[in-house]
Simulated scan of single mutants.
Amino acid sequence: MATALRLLSGLAFSFLYINAFAFTSISAIDGHVLETWSRTSNYESQKEADAHALEGCRVEARKSGIGNLASKCKIAMRAKGPGYGAIVCGDGGCSWITGAESSQAAVDAAYDGCSKNYNNCPSENIKYWEDFAGFSAKPVANVTGGDCRPRTATLRCQSTCSNGDCIVSYENGCKMHVKVNSRFDNFQNQWVYPAPSC
């Protein structure tokens, strides 16, 4: 089971954006993933996400009648990337994904992973979540001189990018230079640059 968890973790990491600020952790007990998995997402620090995932795993272990194994809960996956995640459990284990571009992409990838590794994976009512807390492209230089973004509740912008170098233009005339990090898109089988957020 430990090998399966590492394999699933590796698959999940390939969908991540790099250097973002939304943190997810999934915790489980090897050999008892179905009864103990716990996911936390949208935390602003990895330490906080890990602590809550581990506690959730211990709670699930006690609910499942294997509280004596609660101390064996460990982090099975960490994701520091914005996007959608999903988990599908079949006979013998679970497959999860995080950092997908849409909830449907996350659901599809988790289901495909489960179907390849386990039997009787459900195709309906798949659990998914979104993980975007704190994510934004970080301004690294400013075309007009400081942070000139409008201070309004809703921001609207347009961006023009060359690879990871982008100029983001706001409605008030502000133009800011931001850098975005590449991420690997398994569907296109290549590294891509996501559009920066406003």
Score class of each variant (00 low, 15 high):
Q46R: 07
S14A: 11
P122R: 06
R39E: 03
F23G: 04
I26Q: 02
H32Y: 15
E48P: 07
N68D: 13
I26H: 03
K72N: 11
W96C: 02
A53W: 03
S27W: 11
Y170G: 01
A195P: 03
D165C: 10
I87D: 01
K116G: 12
H52E: 12
T154C: 10
Q190Y: 12
S27D: 06
W129F: 06
Y128Q: 02
K179G: 00
L54I: 13
W96N: 00
G173W: 10
N186E: 13
V140N: 13
G83I: 00
A70H: 08
S45H: 06
D165N: 13
C157Q: 01
N186K: 14
P122G: 08
T160Y: 06
G56A: 09
E171W: 12
D147G: 14
E130H: 09
I126C: 02
C89M: 05
V143T: 11
L16E: 00
A109H: 10
K138P: 04
V107N: 05
T24M: 13
G134H: 03
I18A: 10
G113A: 06
E124W: 13
A12L: 07
G99V: 02
G65S: 12
N19Q: 09
D30G: 09
G10Y: 14
H52I: 09
E35G: 01
R6D: 13
Y128D: 05
S136Y: 10
T144S: 10
I29S: 01
S123G: 12
A2H: 12
W37P: 03
A28W: 02
C166R: 08
S95N: 09
S95V: 00
G145F: 09
V140W: 10
D91T: 15
A20R: 07
F21Q: 08
Y170V: 00
C161A: 12
Y118T: 05
I97E: 06
V140P: 06
R156D: 12
T144R: 11
A110N: 00
N163A: 15
G83T: 03
E60Y: 11
K74L: 11
R6F: 15
V168F: 01
P194S: 08
K116F: 13
Q158T: 12
E48T: 15
P122E: 09
S25A: 08
V178S: 04
G56C: 04
K72S: 08
G56L: 05
